[in-house]
Design a protein around this nucleic acid. Structure first.
Lengths: 219, 219
DNA sequence: GATTATTTTTAGGCTTGTCTAAAATAAATT
DNA sequence: AATTTATTTTAGACAAGCCTAAAAATAATC
C-alpha cells in the first residue's frame, strides 16, 4: 500500500522541480536533484507511472498526477512541521534541522502528523519562511521579495531563504540574518546587486548571489 | 559508516532476546522475533559478525559485542524517549505509540536525541514503565512484580507491562489499567492465578495470563 | 551407539534500487 | 536538410535483504 522511502523522494523531487506551467520535469533534472543517474530515474519513472502517480511518456518527461501531487504535498507538510518542532520546541538552529526533517518526513502515521500540528498550534510557515500546506494541501502565500531587489533606504524583515542548503544557512547564522530580523538597505550596487545593509546590531555587505537567496517582507 | 534500518533491527532483537547469562541467542529465536526465515537470519549474522557487532559461530548462536550492545542500547533509548514524547507532549495513547516509535528510533542524529531528552526533562521511564538508558547506556531498575504474584489484600500501582503488544495495551486501556492506576487485589486464584481486583472506579477480573503481563509497584 | 528429530546452514533465486556502457531519440547547428 | 550534440532509454550487472528447498550439523531418543 504505502510507498517506499525512495519512491517518496522521487515524488518530492518532481514537485520541487515542476515550476513550468505544464508541470513537466525532465529526466536529467530529476537525476541532478537526487544526485543519481539518468538511467535510474528512467527506471523509477516507469514504476511511478505504473502506479499512476505521474504521467510519463518516453523521452518527454514526467508530471505529477493528482494523487502524486497529493502525496508529495503531504511530504512537504510533514517536513516543514517537523522543522518547526525542531527549532521551536527543541531549540535547534535552522541550519541543522533540514537533514533531520528529511528523515522525519518519511515516518508513516496520519495520527502523528495531526497531533504534531495541534501541538505546534497549526503554524503557517516553517523556520525558513516557507509555507506549510494544511491537511488538504492548501497553503498561504506570503508577499516576499528577494533582498537583491531592494533599493537604498528600503526596510523589511527577513522571512526565509530560497535555497535551504546547510552551508548557506550556517553562513547566514554567523551574520545574524535569521528569520524575524529587521534590516535596512544602505546601498544596492547597480552593477552586481551586492548589498550593504544594517541590522539592529551590525552593518553587513552581501554579494548579489547571497542577497538573491534571502527573502524579505517589506515594511 | 552508519547501519541500515534492517541491521539495527537485528541488533535490537538480539539485545531483547539475550537473557541468558552468556547472552547467546539462537538463529531460530531471532527469526521468530523478527518474523523472518532462519536462512535470512544466518545471512545477517555473518554480516554483523564481519562488522564485529556480534560474536557468531556456525551452529552456536550469536551474542552482542560491546559495540553491538552500545548501538542496540542507543536504539532502545531513542525508542523510549520518542514514546514519552508521543504520550506526554502529543497526547497520544500508550497503545498507539509503539509502532510509530519503532520508526522514529531509526532517525540518525545524536544532537536530536539529546535535545529531545532535554526537552522531555530527562525521563527515567517510558509510558509502559520500561527504563530509559541514559547517553552512556546505564538505566535505573525499578522494583516491580507481576500482578499475578500479588495475594489477597495487597495494594500497588500499575507501572507497566511485560509485553507491549498493541492489542494487549488496547485491552488494558479499555479496563482503565493504565500506568499510575492504584489497584488492590481481592482474590488470587491458587489454581490458575486469575485475579479479582478493585481500582478507584471499578472491579475487574483478569486471567492469569493477563495478570502475569502487568507489572506492579507495591505500596 | 545408532537412529530419528530438530536446528542451522548452504544453494539458488527473486525484488528493489542502483550503476556503466551502448543504443535510440530529440534538439541544435551548420 | 544533413550532421553533430545532448538527452533519454535499454541492456546487463551488482548489492542488500528476502525467500524456498535441500544439505549439514547438532540434539534427542531408543
Amino acid at each position: 500500500m504505502g510507498l517506499s522511502y525512495v519512491e517518496e523522494n522521487y515524488l518530492k523531487a518532481i514537485l520541487k522541480l515542476s515550476g513550468a506551467p505544464d508541470g513537466i520535469v525532465s529526466t536529467n533534472a530529476i537525476a541532478a536533484q537526487l544526485s543519481t543517474s539518468a538511467a535510474s530515474v528512467t527506471d523509477m519513472l516507469k514504476k511511478l507511472s505504473d502506479k499512476e502517480l505521474i504521467a510519463y511518456q518516453r523521452y518527454k518527461g514526467a508530471a505529477l498526477s493528482d494523487e502524486g501531487q497529493r502525496i508529495a504535498t503531504t511530504l512537504v507538510r510533514k517536513h516543514r512541521l517537523w522543522e518547526v518542532f525542531l527549532v521551536q520546541s527543541l531549540g535547534m538552529t535552522w541550519d541543522e534541522v533540514h537533514d533531520i526533517a528529511e528523515q522525519l518526513e518519511h515516518i508513516q502515521s496520519d495520527a502523528l502528523i495531526e497531533c504534531l500540528d495541534d501541538f505546534l498550534g497549526h503554524p503557517k510557515f516553517d523556520p525558513h519562511g516557507d509555507p506549510i500546506p494544511n491537511a488538504e494541501g492548501k497553503y498561504t502565500v506570503r508577499a516576499q521579495i528577494p533582498l537583491s531587489k531592494l533599493t537604498e533606504g528600503q526596510q523589511g524583515i527577513v522571512i526565509g531563504v530560497r535555497e535551504d542548503e546547510t552551508a548557506f544557512l550556517k553562513h547566514l547564522n554567523e551574520k545574524g540574518l535569521i528569520p524575524g530580523k529587521a534590516i535596512k538597505v544602505l546601498t544596492n550596487d547597480a552593477y552586481d546587486n551586492s548589498i550593504r545593509l544594517v541590522t539592529e546590531d551590525r552593518e553587513l555587505h552581501l554579494s548579489g548571489k547571497v542577497a538573491g537567496n534571502i527573502m524579505i517582507k517589506l515594511q
